[in-house]
């Protein structure tokens, strides 16, 4: 399968020399949903920042459509790869929801008419049309999450990177987000500790620890391996434990493709 985004031996060191990501390789195919799991400090958030060109890799390379992404193509990379940060508040920096969603299209110098179309489209996609004129600080956690998602979608990305997307959501918000992401049909990389969510949404997962790739493969196989999970500071999702309720949200939807 051709890859939309590929990390090849990607590495990143913080300015103090500490290794955050090392020799990490994986691919994300068009339309694929890939889970990124690992304990705290595994390098998940840093990896997402590397994949959007916010951080420059110390080693290795990033490929978009099979071609290396040099500095001159960063704008293209950011337009095609959207990211939603862990804290939605970090993405909402203007005083009106519609302005926040319009931020990306305006920065990429789209015409006012096209910007308006993108804003309508993105807000509709996340079911947040009624929030258009609201002030970000008066939104609930779930509403902020939807607006942050809309602000990424307004650039019509081909892939979406989500950092802990369920961290401030109640069960209903979590269910709605899952349904929304399933409907989007975009390539999606979900970095999360919420393994039930990852299991329900992503057929394949990449497990990293200490900035290195541990394994990558079918979600049910990897997340269901209790010894592996415990060895890397995680826990097997409840729905994969023996005698778990087969109707549990995460239990029966994960269909795993072949490992890359």
């Amino acid at each position: 399968m051709s890859s939309l985004l590929e990390a090849r031996d990607l590495g990143y060191r913080y300015p103090d020399g500490q290794v955050a990501v090392e020799g990490l390789s994986f691919t994300l195919a068009p339309g694929e949903r890939l889970g990124l799991v690992g304990p705290n400090g595994a390098g998940k958030s840093t990896l997402l920042l590397l994949l959007t060109g916010v951080l420059t890799p110390s080693e290795g390379e990033l490929l978009l459509d099979g071609e290396s992404v040099p500095k001159g193509r960063l704008a293209e990379l950011r337009r095609r790869i959207g990211i939603v940060f862990q804290h939605s508040d970090d993405m909402l920096f203007t005083s009106r929801v519609s302005d926040d969603v319009a931020f990306g299209p305006r920065q990429t110098r789209l015409s006012p008419d096209e910007t308006a179309i993108r804003v309508d489209e993105a807000l509709r996609a996340v079911g947040a049309e009624e929030l258009r004129e609201r002030v970000p600080q008066h939104l609930s956690g779930g509403e902020k999450r939807r607006v942050a998602l809309a602000s990424a979608l307004a650039l019509r990305p081909e892939a979406l990177l989500l950092d802990e997307p369920t961290s401030d959501l109640d069960p209903r918000g979590r269910r709605e987000l899952r349904a929304l992401l399933e409907d989007l049909e975009l390539a999606t990389l979900v970095a999360s500790h919420d393994l039930e969510f990852v299991l329900a949404l992503c057929p394949r997962v990449l497990l990293i620890d200490g900035g290195r790739r541990v394994t990558c493969g079918p979600s049910r196989e990897i997340l269901g391996d209790e010894a592996l999970m415990l060895a890397h500071g995680l826990e097997r999702p409840h729905s994969l434990t023996p005698h778990a309720d087969p109707h549990h949200p995460g239990g029966s939807h994960a269909h795993a493709p072949e490992e890359d």
Binding site: V54, A75, R78, D90, F93, F103, R106, Q107, S151, L155
Partner: peptide
């Protein structure tokens, strides 16, 4: 810390050092 994250979020959405406002 927040200012750093905010700048990252802006760069991810096409910001290149100049804010473009609607005409």
């Amino acid at each position: 810390g927040r200012a750093e994250r905010l700048e990252q979020a802006m760069r991810c959405r096409g910001y290149e050092g100049e804010l473009i406002l609607p005409d």
